[in-house]
Design a protein around this nucleic acid. Structure first.
Lengths: 335, 335
DNA sequence: GCGGGCAATGTCCTTGATGGTCATGGTTCA
DNA sequence: TGAACCATGACCATCAAGGACATTGCCCGC
């Protein structure tokens, strides 16, 4: 079933059929209707491969997601998808595990599909640098900043992680906490948002002159309930008298709260907990989670806009911050 | 940059380059290496549109996900993705909101990309019937049964929702509960897993001779925290003396628990709550959630296997159930 | 009545890769 | 020595669509 069959069936030439199917002018109403009737009757669709070959375009946008456990991601993905649907482009989502070596393979497949642009969600620049840098299309890093990293086709849209974390720590200090532990993702790379959050914490502590022993008070964990549960245990071992914990993600905060309770302690009476991300779930927990709400929708929207601008008009890469919202919650108390 | 450029650059003919890039025999090691060197140096990739046009193949598997809030989905998606990566096919995920009219548009785009097969996640048959039935490729419905619905290219892999719900209600009855409320998704369609869960509840109650007034004791809610919070409120209004709630999804159970607490009641002392899905999160909540654990990994694995079998070997559609696991938890108490 | 203008439509070529056919020159084996 | 085989390339058709350009026919004004 090709456009020729439709042409023969309707009694017109392929050009006219092509014009009708692409909503181009210079087709009589009569021809348009007759052709559309045949198309409807046969359920015909243009062959996308041929179409794209001829038009030298490609299959759409690819989204690379790293980390299944981040509870902020589903809503961001849905929003991205929704925005991209309006463009009529396909959206190739690659949903990879945080730890997976699948990135290479995903990059290979991604390359073969010739996407028009790439969106990265999860992790910092390392995804990009690792395998996708060779794909010469505009990219946007979501929820992480790529400022000053020297990739000129890479934009980013993120929360001001450093400043937000500073606010959190200031808040804890204002409430009288001094023995604060940090449950962070990996901190080595400050292009990683979690690294930045960690940086923000240290900044605030230093500014206020509160001593901090990274060896005891800082533990790294992956984005998972079980990992952060373990990590919280290690924090307790190293620092049994802590009064507050900053978790670099809500999912970590939830894991930490379970660990605190399993040691027979209460939140927030014995230990205060602050998360980061502001997932809807936090407000449904008991106690309601004190957290920093990232505006996932705004991040999704701006990322798609930046990407489309870069694709359509070759706009240069830029790095944007979207406002965050500190959400006080019952999981923190005054000392 | 086309295959011709590579041929010119490497000093061989187009045919040989094509053979090398497609791992075909009858190429000398010398030619292979020389050509691969040029390919690496230039970063050349075959034009996938031209290739697929010629070979009349398509772009991969499309996954249609309906419902962002189901906490079981991310891990299933990741697993599906991981399995499909092994095949080397792309995986086009369409992440749609539960309520969205985006389905039509997604179906249109999906049709244009000529997928080799379709996976559906979320909702029952209605997704499929609505827009995708016209796409003549093998399909698998995940986490919902399509048995006996008369679509012969549609397989399904799911939990025995009816039976699992019966077990839950039996459990509640055994503990002495009699005034049990049901917080369900929409119940009209018994091809919808949530409809089946509801059916199972009613079966068990009827079998044990416990009276049930659907008008008062059954409330429908969408898969969201806020909706189930509201719905739980309505249940209380209609039946203030309920002692147990069966929520048709963990996310609903969490919304319900918040509603219960906001009325000044305790879980499980005043109201017992059972969920469904068995998301990892449940075990980190306080109280730990009593639920039915669906084996998302098994569902993902079998679904992909069924789909690939159908694509590769034309295997007929089948409908499989994967074992579930009833997880007692602290959110239920003996009366 | 004739040429200009224009809308509707068709012809032919191009897109990048693949595969088949055939020819060539070289090597190996019986 | 001849047959079989291999590596290779030139050439062409093919895939399904789109675009440049040509053609047709009609209307209008002078």
């Amino acid at each position: 079933m090709t456009i020729k069959d439709i042409a023969r069936e309707s009694g017109y030439g392929v050009t006219t059929v092509s014009r009708v199917l692409n909503n181009q002018p210079n087709v009589s109403e009569e021809a348009r209707e007759k052709i559309l009737e045949v198309v409807r009757r046969t359920g015909f669709r243009l062959n996308s491969n041929a179409k794209r070959l001829k038009q030298q375009t490609s299959s759409g946008i690819a989204v690379v997601v790293k980390g299944v456990n981040n509870m902020l991601f589903p809503s961001i993905l849905q929003r991205v998808q929704s925005r991209l649907l309006d463009t009529g482009w396909a959206c190739l989502i690659n949903y990879l595990d945080e730890s997976a070596d699948e990135v290479e393979e995903a990059a290979r497949i991604c390359t073969e599909t010739h996407p028009l642009g790439l969106l990265f969600l999860g992790g910092g620049i390392e995804n990009f640098r690792r395998s996708f840098a060779a794909i010469p299309v505009p990219c946007v890093l979501m929820t992480a900043s790529a400022r000053g990293l020297g990739f000129d086709s890479l934009s980013s849209v993120s929360t001001d992680d450093t400043y937000a974390a500073e606010c959190v720590i200031e808040h804890l200090l204002d409430l009288g906490h001094r023995r604060i532990a940090i449950l962070s993702g990996w901190t080595g790379d400050e292009s990683n948002p979690v690294g930045l959050r960690c940086r923000g914490c240290l900044n605030a502590l230093e500014r206020r002159g509160v001593p901090f022993d990274a060896g005891r008070q800082l533990v790294t964990s992956r984005f998972s309930l079980s990992d952060s549960y373990e990590a919280m245990g290690r924090l307790f071992d190293a620092m049994p008298d802590l009064t507050a914990v900053f978790a670099a993600a809500d999912v970590m905060a939830i894991g930490a709260i379970r660990a605190i309770r399993d040691r027979g302690l209460r939140v927030p009476e014995d230990v205060s907990v602050v998360g980061f991300d502001g997932v809807e779930l936090g407000a449904y927990l008991t106690p309601k989670l004190c957290t920093v709400r990232q505006d996932g929708e705004a991040i999704a929207d701006r990322s798609v806009e930046l990407l489309l601008d870069a694709i359509d008009r070759g706009t240069a890469a830029s790095h944007e911050l979207v406002p965050f919202h500190f959400t006080p919650g019952e999981s923190v108390r005054q000392l």
